[in-house]
C-alpha cells in the first residue's frame, strides 16, 4: 500500500493532483481512494487530500502517515513533514517554502515549482510541475502512462491546456537540483 498526501493552499490545484494520481492508479488496475479535506478551508485556507493506491481493498481513506508527502505551502510543511513514514518521500515547493527537513530517515526533494511555472509560461501549473518531480522521485508508474492520463483529464474544450499540462509534467520530471 502507498499513501500519498498533497497539501497546500486552496486554489493551488491540490485536489487536482490527488485526482490525477488516483486516475493513474485506476488506469493501472489498482484499488484507489481519494479523500479531500472539505469545508471552509477549501476557500483560501489550507487544503489537502489523501490518495491511497493499493492491490488490496482500501481500509481507511485517510492518510495520516504518508509514504509520499507533497507540500506547497509552509503551514502544510510544518503540519505534515513529521508525519512522513520512515523511508518515505517528501517533495517541497522550495519557491514557497524556505525550510528544509532535518529528518535523516526520509528522502526529501526540493523543487521551486511555482517559480519554474512563472518562468516558463505555466502559470497555475506548479502543481503539475511538482507532480512530475514526484513521479521521478518515487518511480511509481510509467511516464508515458501518466502523461496520457493527464492529457485525458484536461477538459476537451481546452486543448492548449493539455499541451501546457504535458509541458509542466515534463519540466518537473526532468528538473534537477
Amino acid at each position: 500500500m502507498s499513501g500519498f498526501l498533497f497539501a497546500g493552499f486552496g486554489g493551488q490545484g491540490i485536489l487536482f493532483s490527488g485526482k490525477l494520481l488516483a486516475k493513474i492508479g485506476l488506469a493501472h488496475g489498482k484499488q484507489v481512494s481519494w479523500l479531500p479535506s472539505y469545508g471552509p478551508e477549501m476557500r483560501g485556507g489550507t487544503a489537502n487530500c489523501s490518495v491511497i493506491i493499493d492491490d488490496e481493498p482500501i481500509g481507511s481513506p485517510l492518510v495520516t502517515k504518508p509514504d509520499v508527502l507533497v507540500v506547497l505551502n509552509l503551514p502544510s510543511f510544518e503540519k505534515f513533514e513529521k508525519t512522513v513514514k520512515k523511508g518515505g518521500v517528501l517533495i517541497v515547493d522550495s519557491s514557497l517554502i524556505d525550510k528544509k527537513s532535518e529528518r535523516k530517515d526520509i528522502n526529501s526533494y526540493y523543487i521551486p515549482a511555482s517559480m519554474l511555472a512563472s518562468e516558463n509560461g505555466l502559470e497555475g501549473l506548479a502543481n503539475v510541475i511538482i507532480f512530475g518531480h514526484m513521479m521521478k522521485a518515487t518511480g511509481i508508474f510509467d511516464y508515458a502512462a501518466v502523461e496520457k492520463v493527464l492529457v485525458d483529464s484536461t477538459p476537451k474544450s481546452k486543448p492548449q491546456l493539455a499541451e501546457l499540462n504535458a509541458k509542466a509534467l515534463s519540466l518537473g520530471y526532468g528538473w534537477q537540483e
Partner: peptide
Amino acid sequence: DGALGQMMEP
C-alpha cells in the same frame, strides 16, 4: 457520512 460522501473511488 462526510468521508464517504466526499471521497472518490472507482
